[in-house]
Amino acid sequence: MNNIFSASSQIGLASTFSDLVNTDFKGEINALCWYRNLDGDFNEIVGQLRIKENITEVYPEDLIALQLSDKGNIARNIILNDLELLTDFGASPSLNLLKCYERDDEFDFISTDVYSFHVDRSPIATDTFLCTYHGSASDIISNSEAEQKILIPEIRAKLKELHNGPSEEFEIFLKENYFDLHYQVHANVEPTNLGVGHLWRLAVDHPKQQVLPCIHRAPLENEGEYRLLLIC
């Protein structure tokens, strides 16, 4: 089971939920995976849910109301259990049925949407948890495989033109507009796909973090296929 992720020195493996939440990030490890081969028919759940907009939050009562086969019921119980585990841990998980995220195409030289490789930032000590139950899964890369876009000279020059203000306020401008969170991947880098069914914990940029934040991106969705994603 470890072959998929063992080539990446940034990934630690957990065998239980307790391991996932209690293992400290250290060194290069800024992503932890509770690797699971889930049983159940998650496609049946997706087929019965109704998407209201590009992102529709699905609540436990929505899942409970579905009339499912035995396989569908197994999948539902897995999702409900994951939601309960994370809630009891103190997180605020959200289950989303996704058609697509909003695109940022305002500038042709830099993007700040979730399809761009980026890190998450928080003012408090927290982590990002996510699990894809159905559809395309996110990618991660190690921090040595990318460069902050704001440090690339040609991009930085264009951002300074865009800022058009006092130089001492430039760094504030970059943070306020989230430009500093986005990364350019080096040539010939093969991202690690997070796969379906595994519950991940990714390091976030916050004042107490002991490791570099995990660089990740949302996947391009498959045509005509919704994603079912737990995230918090």
Rank of each mutant, 00 (worst) to 15 (best):
S69I: 08
N143P: 05
E176G: 10
I172P: 00
T126C: 10
H134E: 14
L20I: 04
D108I: 12
R103Y: 11
L83T: 03
A157S: 15
V185D: 05
E171Q: 15
F129G: 01
L151H: 10
A146R: 02
Y35Q: 15
E225S: 08
L181A: 11
I11D: 00
S167K: 14
E28V: 06
T192E: 06
W34G: 00
I74T: 15
V189M: 11
K52G: 05
N164C: 15
N2V: 09
G224F: 07
I150Q: 03
N54H: 12
A187F: 11
S92M: 12
F179Q: 02
P123Y: 07
I64D: 12
F109Y: 15
I152G: 01
Q209V: 08
Y226P: 01
I172G: 06
I124N: 11
E225H: 09
P153S: 09
F117V: 11
T87A: 09
I29G: 01
A91D: 11
L228S: 02
L80R: 05
Q48D: 06
D82Y: 01
E169Y: 14
P60G: 10
I155E: 05
H182S: 03
I124A: 09
L83Y: 01
F25H: 03
V189C: 10
H118Y: 11
L80K: 06
T132H: 04
E171I: 10
L32N: 00
V119C: 12
E28R: 10
Q67W: 02
E171A: 14
G197E: 00
Q210T: 15
T132N: 09
D180V: 08
H182K: 04
L174N: 08
E84M: 12
R121M: 07
C131N: 01
Q148T: 06
D108E: 15
R103I: 14
A91H: 06
I51G: 12
D120E: 15
N54Q: 13
N3F: 13
V119E: 05
I51C: 10
A91E: 14
Y226W: 07
N143D: 12
H216T: 04
C33S: 08
V211R: 03
V196K: 10
F5T: 10
S122V: 03
A125S: 13
R217H: 05
P191N: 07
D113A: 13
I150P: 01
